[in-house]
Simulated assay, not measured.
Amino acid sequence: MSGTTAMRENLRQMIAVLQAERQALAGLDLDAIMGCAQDKVALCGTLDECGPFVEASQIDEECRGLLDAARRLNEVNRQVRNLIAANVAARLDALTGSPALYNAPGNARAAYAYTGGRI
């Protein structure tokens, strides 16, 4: 299998894992989230192995499109994870009746809420 063919197949698998991660995040399924995290790490290792054999000039349009799709899905999933974490922190603060110990200057939760509106 050539370097670009292997990369293309690995990128397709990465996109499938990122979509599964989004579903796991939506369902708050911790086991599935952890499984997706392990799959992503394994695929990153596999992609790293393909990398030295594929130069930037050899990457075709399909691979570039898959790379862009994977990058966008990963960014959306990162934002969703951050929104969930901010929501949990806000609920814990409400339960304890105390402000968060590690609040960033300004209101970080408001920034996440703003970001959430764009998803």
Results as ranks from 00 to 15, higher is better:
Ala42Lys: 07
Ala104Leu: 09
Arg71Gln: 08
Thr4Met: 05
Ile119Ala: 01
Arg118Ser: 03
Ile84Gly: 10
Val41Ser: 04
Ala100Asp: 09
Arg78Pro: 12
Ala70Lys: 04
Leu95Tyr: 11
Pro52Gln: 01
Gln19Gly: 13
Ile59Asn: 00
Gly27Pro: 15
Arg22Gln: 14
Met1Gln: 01
Leu67Thr: 08
Arg91Ser: 15
Asp48Asn: 09
Ala24Gly: 09
Asn10Met: 09
Gly65His: 01
Arg72Gln: 13
Glu55Val: 03
Ala6Tyr: 02
Ala90Ser: 13
Gly117Gln: 01
Glu9His: 06
Asn107Leu: 08
Ala69Asn: 10
Gly106Ser: 06
Leu66Tyr: 02
Leu18Ala: 07
Leu73Glu: 06
Leu25Ala: 08
Ala100Asn: 08
Val80Gly: 08
Met34Gly: 14
Ala110Ser: 07
Val76Tyr: 12
Thr115Ala: 05
Ala20Asn: 13
Leu95Glu: 11
Arg78Leu: 10
Leu47Lys: 02
Ala37Arg: 12
Ser2Asn: 10
Cys50Gly: 04
Lys40Ile: 03
Leu25Asp: 07
Asp39Gly: 06
Leu25Glu: 09
Gly3Arg: 00
Ala86Phe: 04
Leu73Ile: 11
Val17Asp: 03
Glu9Ile: 02
Ala85Leu: 14
Leu30Met: 15
Leu28Asn: 14
Leu73Val: 10
Val76His: 13
Leu66Phe: 02
Arg78Cys: 12
Cys36Ala: 14
Gln58Arg: 05
Ser57Leu: 01
Arg12Asn: 07
Gln13Trp: 11
Ala89Ile: 11
Asp31Lys: 15
Arg81Trp: 12
Cys36Gln: 13
Ala6Gln: 00
Asp68Pro: 10
Gly116Ser: 00
Gly65Glu: 00
Ala56Val: 05
Asn10Ser: 08
Glu9Val: 03
Arg118Val: 08
Leu92Met: 15
Ile84Trp: 11
